[in-house]
């Protein structure tokens, strides 16, 4: 029931777009309401990518500061408000994750153990919309390990290097496989079923 409420509140794009516009004009109350309605979704996105909770919290905070700063640049042509905000959160989370693993691994604990339960299967979500079903059908057309690579990258922020290690392939092979898989995905999405 809670999920349903969250889903319906974040899916009313009109309300979110108005809040985003007002936040862009400097309206802090609107920004606070925007946060109340979207932060659980964005934190969900970030937590998958930054399994360390402190890092995830940092990612959330930085994401909303960026959202506040960039709210006046939001363009509905580039997607729904929640999609636009989730992209900012995802990109910020991936940047933090890379930094943590690439630059400061010698100074800190490694990222917590990867959640071997991921890749999450989008099909487990009963609320999925038509676009997601379509994307999922196209993903199902890929060999299982390729689909897993795509989902691990998208949901969990894995780099080519991390994927190469898990799937025991050279990094360059992973790069080729990813790009071919994406090309096939595009063909499936653009070309109909």
């Amino acid at each position: 029931m809670l999920r349903k409420n969250l889903a319906s509140s974040t899916s009313s794009s009109d309300g979110l777009a108005a809040l985003l516009t007002r936040a862009g004009a400097g309206d802090r109350d609107a920004f606070e309401r925007l946060y109340a309605r979207t932060s659980a979704k964005l934190f969900g996105v970030i937590c998958r990518i930054c399994p360390n909770r402190e890092l995830a919290k940092e990612g959330l905070q930085e994401s909303y500061v960026i959202i506040w700063q960039k709210a006046d640049t939001y363009d509905p042509a580039l997607g729904s408000p929640i999609a636009w905000m989730a992209r900012i959160a995802r990109n910020r989370a991936i940047d933090l994750r890379r930094l943590r693993t690439e630059r400061i691994s010698d100074l800190s604990d490694p990222i917590d153990d990867y959640d071997e339960a991921s890749p999450a299967d989008p099909a487990s979500d009963a609320e999925q919309n038509e676009e997601l079903r379509r994307l999922e059908r196209c993903l199902d057309g890929l060999p299982t390990d390729r689909k897993d690579m795509i989902l691990l990258a998208y949901y969990s922020g894995w780099s080519r290097e991390e994927l190469a290690e898990k799937f025991s392939r050279p990094v360059n092979t992973v790069k080729t496989v990813l790009r071919r898989s994406l090309a096939l995905l595009r063909e499936c999405l653009d070309g109909g079923d």
Binding site: R3, L6, R28, E32, Y35, S39, A40, K41, L42, F43, G44, V45, C47, R48, R53, K57, L60, Q61, Y64, V65, W68, L78, G79, A83, A86, R87, R90, A120, P122, S124, D125, E127, Q128, N129, E131, L132, R134, L135, L151, Y154, Y155, L185, R186, L189
Partner: peptide, 25 residues
């Protein structure tokens, strides 16, 4: 980004830490 956006629909919301918004503010 638009092509892959629908995948985000399947991400479960997670309640953020209570003090996060105060820090943002």
């Amino acid at each position: 980004e638009r092509r892959l956006d629908p995948l985000l629909d399947a991400v479960e919301p997670v309640a953020p830490p209570m003090d996060a918004f105060a820090a943002i503010k």
